[in-house]
Write a protein that binds this DNA or RNA. Structure first.
Length: 190
DNA sequence: AGCGGGATTTTCT
DNA sequence: GAAAATCCCGCTT
């Protein structure tokens, strides 16, 4: 799976949209788990809701690094969320992966989710991290490489993309930087 | 179907 | 000390 990540060096909004339909591949104990990205949110350093808003810190350093690496954070005392770093190096931006659709290895994902099935397997940012076993060990990981890879797919027609406000934030509530694939059942909230 | 609270720890004020 | 880019459970309509 070799891909051109140059599209990820664009601004966070463009990248968040561009990632819809792209594929995440996770390798665990020799087994492949694959899923399609169906919902994303954009964050960047000009945005009060972004972790990168207050500049580079030990926590957010990865967001200021090269595009196509994994920015993973721990929140609410128990959950991980997975972002793909966007933009040029030195600029703090990324796209939160909010929902994916299982393509391969779904049984293993359900196991990882302690028996949650159907859309409940991966229809939320912390749910998909649990399903795909994404945690802090993969912070800063280059998504060109195993065991967590991103495969770029062709751009979706604009007519299939819905744009709306983000979820679960208190600052910059009204900024419409959430994107999802119209009609996809795995989208966390419509 | 919708609301409210608890879990639990890192990060920032 | 409080809030956090969340999820799950239980209770009420």
């Amino acid at each position: 799976m070799s891909d051109d990540f140059s599209v990820l060096r664009d601004d966070a909004v463009t990248v968040a949209k561009r990632l819809l339909g792209c594929i995440i591949e996770r390798k665990i104990d020799g087994q492949i788990l694959r899923a399609r990205i169906v919902e994303t949110e954009a964050y960047d350093q000009t945005d009060a809701a972004s972790h990168s808003y207050n500049g580079k810190t030990p926590r957010t350093e990865v967001m200021f690094g090269p595009a196509g690496h994994a920015y993973i954070y721990f929140t609410y005392g128990m959950h991980y969320c997975f972002n793909i770093v966007a933009g040029e190096e030195g600029y703090g931006a990324g796209a939160l992966i909010r929902a994916v659709e299982p393509l391969e290895g779904e049984a293993r994902m359900v196991e990882n989710r302690h028996g949650r099935t159907g859309i409940e397997t991966t229809n939320g940012p912390a749910k998909l991290c649990q399903a795909l076993q994404i945690d802090k060990r993969l912070l800063g990981h280059d998504l060109h490489t195993s065991p967590l890879q991103l495969a770029i797919r062709p751009v979706l027609p604009t007519s299939e993309i819905v744009q709306t406000i983000r979820i679960g934030i208190s600052r910059a509530k009204d900024v419409p930087w959430r994107f999802y694939i119209a009609g996809n059942p795995y989208v966390s909230k419509t």
